[in-house]
Amino acid sequence: MAEKKGFFNPTLMYAGAFAVLNVIMYFVIHKFWIGGSSFLPMVGKLGPNKTFLFSFIVNMGVIVGALVSSATNREFTLRMPAAKVLPRAILGGFLIGIGVTLAPGTCTTSFVIGLPMLSISSMLSIAGMFAGGFIVYRLTIKSQS
């Protein structure tokens, strides 16, 4: 995605608004956005004090918010997946499921919450992500191009 230079461009403004909203949520209800662990209710784990259930509901809101935004941008289009990309998507999803559960706080949460909290577990997870992503990039994406 092309992006304008300088501080005051829409992409950075909206990214900043995401961060500000996350901090406000922490101030107001003492909770923050959680990524991967939020899906554990789908396998029957609600977490301590139903934390994962709360995060699951937040993330259902994220889908609705993206829907509202894309509809207002006229970017919303129902797209059916091509059959040939399904195996890769299923394998990717399966690996994500393993990754987010093996060590909590591994996923996108590390970038938007864990690292700003200066959490060591998130720093290690990000290092692992770069390595794992790079291996897949070299084996699949780069070899195809």
């Binding site: 993206a66 129902l78 394998l91 990717g92 987010v100 591994t106 994406i141």
Partner: peptide
Amino acid sequence: YNIISGMIFGAGILLNGGCILGTLRQMGEG
């Protein structure tokens, strides 16, 4: 385990082209 799970997660998101936020966003976009 954090490094291993990060590696598995990193491999997964590169395979399907969406992190957690990206996956939720793309679902919202249809």
